[in-house]
């Protein structure tokens, strides 16, 4: 019951989804749509598990006065504020112009945009790291990156050649390599999906 039934559920639902791909008939389409909705609903219920985990971890840090517990208080304050503001006026709580949305625009959005923009620094430091490696492979990577990067910048007499080379690299060897990766990933993913459906790969199920 504890192990066999879940494996059976995986098998039945997996085989059904593979079969429904080939069957256009509406009866299968309906079940497919329900199943997709059920998955979303399960995900929504699981959100509570997430909130529980975050809250419990933060609270226990505060209780134990662990190093940096004050920051856990900040997390809890942020979370509680959003939950309160998001529900206290029913479904009107998250309309544009509410305090809930103000917090979104003035706290959430700028931090998110800044985190994202850190990539500008990291892409440079990663390039430097690759530059220091000095192997054939790292050199191929860097030289190609340079050619592609410079395609938009005027380089005088070699501009035309560089632009031609950049577009050739993007459409020919780059495409070839990507296809090899895509095909490999396709085979790996389909094989893994089969192993899951047939219950061969089941580490994700845990043990008793």
């Amino acid at each position: 019951m504890r192990r066999q039934l879940p494996i059976l559920i995986v098998f039945v639902s997996g085989v059904f989804m593979v079969i429904q791909y080939f069957i256009p008939h509406e009866s299968f389409e309906f079940i497919y749509e329900y199943a997709m909705d059920w998955i979303i609903i399960i995900g929504i219920f699981a959100m509570l598990l997430g909130l529980w985990s975050l809250t419990r971890a933060s609270v226990s840090k505060v209780q134990a006065k662990a190093p940096g517990w004050g920051f856990s208080v900040m997390t809890l304050v942020g979370l509680a504020t959003m939950l309160f503001l998001g529900f206290y006026k029913g479904n009107k709580s998250i309309a544009e112009g509410t305090f809930f949305m103000d917090l979104f625009w003035y706290i959430y959005t700028p931090i998110q945009a800044t985190m994202f923009s850190l990539l500008a620094f990291y892409i440079a430091s990663a390039a430097y790291r690759a530059f220091r490696v000095r192997t054939v492979l790292a050199t191929i990577l860097l030289v190609t990156a340079l050619i592609i990067m410079l395609r938009l910048i005027p380089l005088g007499p070699i501009s035309g050649v560089n632009q031609w080379l950049a577009s050739w690299i993007l459409t020919v060897p780059n495409m070839a390599a990507k296809r090899a990766i895509w095909i490999g990933v396709g085979l790996g993913a389909t094989a893994t999906a089969l192993k899951i459906i047939f219950g061969i790969e089941r580490a994700y199920m845990g043990k008793d």
Partner: peptide
């Protein structure tokens, strides 16, 4: 940074829960 980070985690988790509730849970279920 720690201050921004911990605030960001709390706010984002709350934002995500609230918006999913109103925009997905209510219409879907």
């Amino acid at each position: 940074y720690k201050f921004c980070e911990s605030l960001f985690v709390g706010i984002s988790a709350g934002y995500w829960f609230v918006t999913t509730f109103w925009q997905v849970f209510m219409p879907k279920l």
